[in-house]
Every structure is written in C-alpha cells, then in structure tokens.
C-alpha cells in the first residue's frame, strides 16, 4: 500500500480512531508529566551542573531540529500498536520508579512517554526514530547510572593513562620554581570527566546533536558516540603535552582561562562533527542505480546492514508518477 493510499485512508478514518489517538496522546502527556514530577529533584540536580546543562542544550537543539524536520500534519498516521507498547513500558518503568523510590528511573519513563507520543504523532517516521528521540530524555539517567558504576572513573583513568604515556613519550615536563620542581602543567586534570562544562558530557551532547540533526543510522551513531570519548581523551592529552612543552620552553605555566577552555571545547566539537560526516559518508547506502537488478544480493545486504535497525527513515518524497497512476 502506497503512502498516498495511507494518507487517503487516514483522512477517511472513522471517529473512533481519532478518539484512540486523543486518548493515546493524553496518556503520553500524563505519563510525561508524572515522570517529570516524580524525578523533579533528579532533574533539578541534573540541571544544576554545568556540564549536564551544556549537554542538555546540545540534546535539546538536536531534538527540536529533528522534530521540525519530521511531519506532524493531519490526518494522523494510523499506527496505534507501537505507541501503546511504548506507553505501556513507560507506565511500568514509572511504577517501578515510584515503588522502588528511585526518581532517577522516572527519566527512562519520561523517555518512553515521549517516544510513544512521537511514534503516534510523527507521520511516516519509523518507530525507531521516535525511540531515538525519546533517548534524549533518558540521557541524564544513563549518565547517572554510568557515574554510579564508576564508568566515568574508568574513562578518567584511561585518559590519565594516555596522558602519562604522552608525558612519558615527551619525557617528564617540569619547571623549577623557588628551588622546587613542578611536574606537568595539569591542563589535563582541568578536563574532568564529570562536573565541569568542558567535561566529557557536552561532547556526548554534541554527538547526539549530530545524530538527530543529520538523521544517522545505528552504525554511525554508535561510532560517533564512541569517538566523543576518544576525542575528549586525545584533546586532553594533547593539551597536556602542548602546554607542558610551552611551559618548559618559557619556564612559566600558561594561564588557564575561559578563552582556552572555549578554544579546546570548540576544537573537540569541530572534530566530532567532522568525524560524524566521515562515518556517515562511509556508511551511506548504495544508490539504486548501482544495484545489479539480476544479482542484487551483495548491495542489498550492505544497504540493509547500514540502515539497520532503521532508526531514521528517509523523509517521504511524494512520487509524481504514483500520483498520476492514482
């Protein structure tokens, strides 16, 4: 059944379908409101930290742009099962959050509520696209879970390892001051893994921004989130060596100010965006004109692979031929 046919069918949808739609959206709104209320303290805490705030701004920008590029016009898409499943999950998670007294988990419920809502509202978009947008609401909870399980400490130790390796490779930078010796500049230590606005979280936010705005599939999305960590560590280590080298040559530690922070953060952001473009170009599907119609297996498998699971479908284009046919 073609897209046009679907639209026609939606337009002629009976009144009870509209009722179902309204009740689904109402439920989603209610669940979202309750989730936010339950996790109010957690959200406040999340927004109280600079790095979380910067991360949230990146996520919100990506979210808004992704929504503006989606289609939400009447008549509504007839999908009801997937939104119902998402809202069901949201309800269960919210229930668990209230019962277990863990407001953090209500973020997950909020994410599923949004996913359920969007799965109904976003016309002709895949359910995975709705879910991926819902993840934006789940990020604080996921980050907190990682933090509590020592995930960031592990990353910090990896970065320290790399930094010490760099220092090792470039000998121990030091300057002598007042008869005492001071090792390294410690620029690397200013790049904390959590708690500062130039920590790893804003880089993760930028990765999500790229995923939402440039409508990435699974493989480039995973790669870009991983590269956020690699870029953060590389910038931190390189800054350590560069500033230590500068210090050793001039016998004075460089001043650490907002300008330097902004510069390093912008450098990281540019690197992540460029890497995103690179991965996306590598993992783009093969256009139909290059598929051998007699033996399409190889190309089809590749195309399936790079678009699975179909997080983001293409924006539907109206086919004039089909219009003519109809």
């Amino acid at each position: 059944m073609s897209d046009a046919a679907l639209s026609t069918a939606s337009a002629a949808a009976p009144a009870e379908n509209r009722t179902i739609g309204y009740s689904l959206q109402g439920t989603a709104a209610l669940l979202l409101a309750i989730s936010v209320l339950v996790g109010w303290g957690f959200w406040m805490n999340w927004f109280s930290k600079t790095d979380s705030l910067v991360c949230s701004i990146c996520l919100a920008l990506g979210f808004v742009i992704a929504l503006s590029r989606g289609m939400m016009t009447e008549p509504m898409y007839r999908r009801t099962l997937v939104p119902a499943i998402f809202l069901g999950i949201a309800f269960l998670v919210l229930f668990y959050s209230v019962v277990s007294g863990r407001p953090k988990i209500s973020c997950i419920a909020a994410g599923f509520s949004v996913a359920g809502w969007l799965a109904y509202v976003l016309r002709s978009e895949s359910a995975f696209q709705a879910l991926s947008l819902g993840v934006a609401f789940m990020v604080p909870s996921i980050v907190d879970a990682c933090e509590q399980r020592g995930g960031f400490e592990f990353i910090e130790s990896c970065a320290l390892n790399l930094t010490s390796g760099l220092a090792e490779a470039n000998s121990q930078f030091h300057i002598q001051r007042d008869g005492a010796i001071e090792f390294g500049h410690g620029v690397a230590d200013r790049f904390s893994s959590v708690g500062r606005w130039d920590s790893i979280l804003p880089f993760v936010g930028i990765s999500f921004f790229c995923i939402y705005v440039f409508r990435r599939n699974l493989i480039p999305s995973v790669l870009i989130i991983v590269s956020a960590f690699l870029v953060w560590m590389a910038i931190r280590a390189t800054a350590w060596v560069a500033f230590s080298w500068y210090a050793e040559r001039n016998e004075v530690w460089p001043e650490w100010g907002m300008g330097m922070q902004l510069f390093l953060f912008a450098l990281g952001a540019v690197m992540i965006v460029l890497l995103d473009q690179f991965f996306a170009a590598l993992f783009e599907p093969i256009p139909a004109e290059f598929i051998n119609e007699d033996l399409p297996l190889a190309a089809t498998v590749w195309n399936g692979m790079v678009s699975l699971p179909s997080l983001c479908f293409k924006i539907p284009q109206r086919s004039f031929d089909r219009d003519n046919e109809e």
Partner: peptide, 17 residues
C-alpha cells in the same frame, strides 16, 4: 582530517593506553 589527528595522538605517542 580528525581521524588522522586522532591517529597521530594515539599512535604517534606510543599507544600507551
């Protein structure tokens, strides 16, 4: 470009990680 830069950082300095 960023891939090469990362490669320089990670490989050029001895892959200490």
């Amino acid at each position: 470009l960023p891939v090469l830069l990362l490669a320089v950082v990670y490989a050029g300095y001895g892959f200490s990680l």
